[in-house]
Design a protein around this nucleic acid. Structure first.
Lengths: 140, 140
DNA sequence: TCTTGACCCTCTAGTGGCTAGAGAGATTAT
DNA sequence: ATAATCTCTCTAGCCACTAGAGGGTCAAGA
């Protein structure tokens, strides 16, 4: 089961230069090479890369992934760590969801008002302008 | 009403270098300067920058903001454009919400399972590893 | 008026997480 | 043997900022 870098890319959905980049930053180990110098991977690399890709998609930063990966090798002692990484990430994720939900509502309201037939006051601009930080508002 | 760049920063929550950056890329017009060469802004800049900041927070890219800003000057004719920018953004936002919601569920499930007292199998790693692209799965 | 301290200037370089391209070598199928 | 398709390294670029060096300016108080 020898995979070229392209095979690994196809198997995981990652791009070839991304795989090399991950190797460069130490997220993937440098694999053995052919006589000609080409990288050859095994099944395990597919899993590891899938792990990375999925975590990235879910918004984990490289450093967090690095920590998580470091734990997979160790015994279960450090589960607490993985847990706290996930926990702090959870808060972040929830904040993002909230913001995005507010945005979605705003966007769809803007759109529906706009296409409602009224003279286009372009609420889009208004709405976006209104909600800035209010440190300098309230001018009395 | 003459504001220094620092005043503008405080008024909007943007950072000073960010304001200069926005000027550099043409998102904010170059303001008049004092004799000594320091930037001086007026009220209008606060609004424009608030607009930009809010839009950025909501995930609009600089180019989209540029387009939106270009429209604010023009008559209402181009509302259709603003609308379609918002519309395409809406789809994106909804996709992101979906992904993040899935993640949140996964994360909180992992966390609750982990702290449930069971031997820590660290489902976190499992869960993250499982959901990669499946192009190479189904090995029969 | 002078001084002090906070502010501001420009410029270059760095960040994260890739992505693109050049120019050359390796592998594979026919 | 040859052609097509990888793959290699290396450098540079992307976005949207952020940080730091080295110096100049402004406004308030003594």
């Amino acid at each position: 089961m020898q995979l070229s870098i392209g095979d690994l890319a196809r198997a995981t959905g990652a791009k070839v230069p991304t795989i090399r980049y991950y190797e460069q930053i130490g997220l993937l180990a440098a694999p053995p090479r052919t006589e000609g110098g080409q990288r050859r991977y095994g099944r395990a690399e597919i899993e590891r890369l899938n792990f990375i890709r999925h975590a990235r998609e879910l918004g984990f930063e490289i450093e967090a992934i690095r920590e998580l990966l470091a734990m997979t090798g160790k015994p279960q002692a450090s589960c607490h760590e993985a847990d706290s990484i996930a926990l702090s990430h959870l808060a972040e994720v929830e904040a993002r969801i909230e913001k995005l939900t507010a945005l979605r509502d705003e966007l769809s309201r803007m759109i529906s008002e706009c296409s409602h037939g009224r003279i286009c006051d372009c609420r889009i601009i208004e709405v976006l302008a209104d909600h800035g930080q209010c440190a300098a508002d309230h001018p009395h």
